[in-house]
Each structure stands twice: as C-alpha cells, then as structure tokens.
Amino acid sequence: MARVLVVGAGATGAFFGARLAAAGNEVTFLVRPRRRDVLRSRGLRIIGPEHEEVLHPRLITADEVGGSHDAVLLSVKAAGLAAAMDDLAPAVGERTAVIPFLNGIAHLDALNRRFGPERVLGGVVKVVTVVDGNGDIRRLAPPASMVIGEQSGQDTERLRLLAGAFAPAAFDFATSGRIVDDMWHKWVFIAAVTAVTVLMRGSVGEIAAVPGGPEFAAAVVAEAAAVSAAAGHPLAGDALAELRAVVTQPGSPYVPSMYRDLSAGRPTEVEHVFGDLVARADALGIGVPLLELATLNLRVHQNRAQGTGV
C-alpha cells in the first residue's frame, strides 16, 4: 500500500486515483473548492458503458496539504502547473516521488527545477475519459494504462515499491527503463493526431476517406517523429508504422481531446504541446511546416477562446 496524493480530479486524475484507492492504497485528492463540493455531493462517479462506480474519497484543498506522501500524481492542464507545484509542495518529502501525467515534456524541466530530479519520475497514462456536465467521469473506451519510471532509467527500490502498490489496480501497469523516450513518443502521437484532425476539421476516418488524406496524415507523423529522433528519442520502426496506421485508419471515429476542446470553443494546450515542439524543431534545424500551421491555427483559436482576439 502507498500513501498517494492525486493533484487534480479531472478526467484522468480521478480515474487513476479511484482505481488506486480501490486497490487498497491511501489516496487523497487535492482539488479546488468548487470541485470538492461537487465530489462531496455526488461522490466520485466513474461511468462506463456497462456499469457505474461511486467512491467517496478523502478530499483536501490547498490550505490543507501537509505530511509527506509516497507518491504525488500530478494530473492538471499545463496552464495550471505553476499553481499546482505551489499547492503540492508541502506534501513532498525526501522520499516522495512526484509523477506527472501531463502532455509534452516541458513540465518535466519545471518539476526538476522545483523539486530536484531525484524526486521526479516520468509518467505516461492512456485513458479515454471526459468530465460530463454533472462533474462525473465518463469512460468512452476500454483501454487504460499507466507507465512510470525513473528519469535515470534505473530500477530503484522506490520504483519497485510503487510498482507493488500500483500493479494490483484495475488498469494496465508497467515500469519503464526508458520513460523519457516513452514521454516523447506519446508527445509525438498527440501532436500528430491533433494536427491532422485540427487542420482538416474531421475525425481520423473522415480524413482517411478523401483523396490525399492518408498521405497528408503520414506527412504530419513524419514531421513529429523527425523532431523526436533529432532530440535523441527516435521511434522504432514498428512504433512508427503503428502510429501511421492509427492516423490513417479508414472509418476511425477517433478525435483527440484537443480537437474536442477546439470544437467546444475551450482553450487548448497549444503552447505546451505544439509551441514547445515547434521551438525544439527550430533549435534542432528540423523543418516542420505542417506542425507550424497547426500551431498557428490553435493560437488563433486560443486568442478567441480567451477573449484576446481583435
């Protein structure tokens, strides 16, 4: 059993925190007062295609954080990272593992500066969930997985202890000796599939169905993969082929979360996912015109969503 603080009870943090609690871990959710009130009223509800789970977890707000934890799972949007680091700091002791589940890679640098790389693990999660109008977590598809690892790639006692606590939970769990590579590769996936769907304003299947659609999608994948390779994190041939297959799959209804945010008029993580990737490409001398176009598109939307446009 591990003492776990989950920072953020949105679609991702609530799902994995609930599963860890159900597996016998001591889980506390650090939330904003408004989210606390919803969860106290309704419970933490995870609604799947066939059943509904309701938990009543321990909830605290920033003024109540104290005592070191074995692990702090950080699941917030990039815009909330700075505030979240301030809020969770009292929970970080000498042996605490801070494990972020944000998109991109820039947050790893920020966390390393704040807490020291010896306290920060890498993490990758995959789950298809949304928060509905009632504040409940709706699971849209069955896959759910978590991978964590030391940035150094070492198999440490801390990592083994966390693995023992996390593995019994009801999701696929693994540790990795190449977690930074894993984080980069997820970044490539998110950037590619988001750029494809955002630029064409359609699902993967709709784009694959038109002449030139599969070729366009493959070109976006090639740009994102080239940046990762130049940064020292190349995708293996089979992984690259699998990604191409995902973004060119005929009939696929898939759209990523940033596309859903765009369609709903909500702000997106454009700078964390795209601005940073394009900046790294420029520094490495890699041409990425399609990713630059997607970045521009999302920046225009961001200004509109935040009310800062002309």
Rank of each mutant, 00 (worst) to 15 (best):
G10D: 15
A22L: 06
D37H: 06
G43N: 11
P49C: 13
H51F: 12
L55C: 00
H56W: 14
P57S: 15
L59A: 04
A62D: 08
D63G: 09
V65W: 12
G66L: 01
V76S: 01
K77N: 04
D86W: 02
D86I: 02
G93M: 15
V98R: 10
I105G: 00
N112V: 08
P117L: 14
R119S: 07
L121N: 06
G122M: 10
G123W: 05
K126A: 08
R138T: 05
V147Y: 06
I148N: 05
E150H: 13
G153N: 10
R158G: 02
R160T: 03
A169N: 00
A169V: 00
A169R: 00
F171I: 03
T175A: 07
R178P: 00
D181G: 05
H185E: 12
W187N: 01
A191C: 14
R201D: 06
I207G: 05
I207P: 02
A209D: 13
V221H: 09
A229S: 10
A231F: 03
D238P: 06
D238T: 11
A241H: 04
A241R: 03
V246M: 12
G251M: 07
Y254P: 00
Y259I: 06
S263K: 11
A264Y: 14
V270Q: 15
R280K: 10
R280A: 14
D282G: 12
I286E: 07
A305L: 14
T308H: 11
V310W: 10
